[in-house]
Design a protein around this nucleic acid. Structure first.
Lengths: 194, 194
DNA sequence: CGAAAATTTGACATGACTCAACTGGAGTGG
DNA sequence: CCACTCCAGTTGAGTCATGTCAAATTTTCG
């Protein structure tokens, strides 16, 4: 299996033997996208799970006023998809695109189901991934309910120190749920206070 | 197995045979709590997963100003826990209590792990549960980012029609992330507009 | 290098919060 | 079964956090 990062990802929760690794490798497709290239567009059907090898993907929705709201960043070693569309088969309400040139693995739902049948312990791996993902999302809901914009900004800096220097402020604003203008003000207040 | 509702819950995703049902039954404990009784308190360690048979539980956090923020309601047929504490073993940051007299099943993490070992297909069931839970939480994040208070209130009424007539308005406010006073105003606007 | 995008800044607008007063219904004890 | 208390809910006045819009400036990258 040539995808070391994917193996490491699996190894956090389960041990695969060589045949199983080879099987899984045969089920994924390696792809590459350029910066700003859209991988999944709102309204399309989504049958894929993506695993980032290098670069960074992001999932966002666009509201009725045209504002973007970022739901997730996926740097290397992260899984990403529109889970709603993936689970239900309904058209996607999210967009997924690349913040920079990104290499990733793509696996269809059919192949993923096949993998579950052939390698049942994968269920365990993905169950645990989903649990952790759930924890992250719940934390984010609580933060939005109980923290001010500046506190959320500080939390973001603390939680994603790598992203801060990599992505435009505008995207951070969209993630923590404020306007870019207001983030600019909040940030300058914050810098003054240091 | 005497817990029909639990069986139905499993059957949505997997088929257990009679031995497996009996095994699982032996791992859970049936409990009952009164209205307002606290099941899990912030700061305690949480090693349990709960499944509601009748009544309604709720999970909430309390912020530094003493305000409550409701993360989840769990009516009959729902699973609930502080997933963060459950997964990491850290003390809980959430409280779980009963909105009304509630009967539920409680299973320890040790027993749940044992169940996964003895009945591997349960991994599948809980993977799927977690995926759906994730979808719900993501939807809630998006709603909070893109909708006004009134829109969120309407969404709540639409999503949880049963709860609306069962729980005090104050709790709805805490769930959608506004003050009870403001919900009162929003609600009267909404009723006028019908 | 030049165009396009991101960021900053300021004046002004507004959605949501705070606080306080009032009302009404639910639970409790005598 | 009444009186009492205690929350939940309502309403209004004033305030605050954040949004809107527009203009100027800086950065990015094609």
């Amino acid at each position: 299996m040539k995808y070391k990062l994917l193996l490491e990802n699996f190894r956090k929760n389960v041990q695969l033997n060589e045949d199983e690794e080879t099987l899984f490798e045969s089920l994924v497709e390696e792809r590459k996208v350029r910066r700003k290239h859209i991988l999944l567009q709102e309204g399309q059907h989504n049958h894929h799970l993506y695993f980032v090898i290098s670069g960074c993907l992001r999932a966002y929705s666009i509201d009725k006023n045209g504002f973007h709201h970022i739901l997730q960043f996926a740097p290397a070693d992260w899984w990403i998809t529109d889970m709603y569309s993936y689970v239900t088969g309904e058209p996607s309400s999210l967009n997924i695109d690349a913040l920079e040139e990104t290499t990733f693995l793509s696996i269809t739902k059919e192949n993923q189901e096949l993998a579950y049948r052939e390698i049942p312990k994968l269920e365990r791996h993905f169950r645990i991934l989903m649990e952790k993902n759930l924890v992250t999302n719940r934390k984010r809901i609580i933060d939005r309910l109980s923290l001010t914009a500046m506190e959320r900004f500080k939390t973001f800096c603390h939680t994603y120190p790598d992203l801060i220097n990599k992505i435009p402020q505008k995207q951070v604003a969209s993630y923590i749920g404020i306007t870019p203008e207001f983030l600019s003000k909040v940030r300058s207040e914050y810098l003054k206070s240091l």
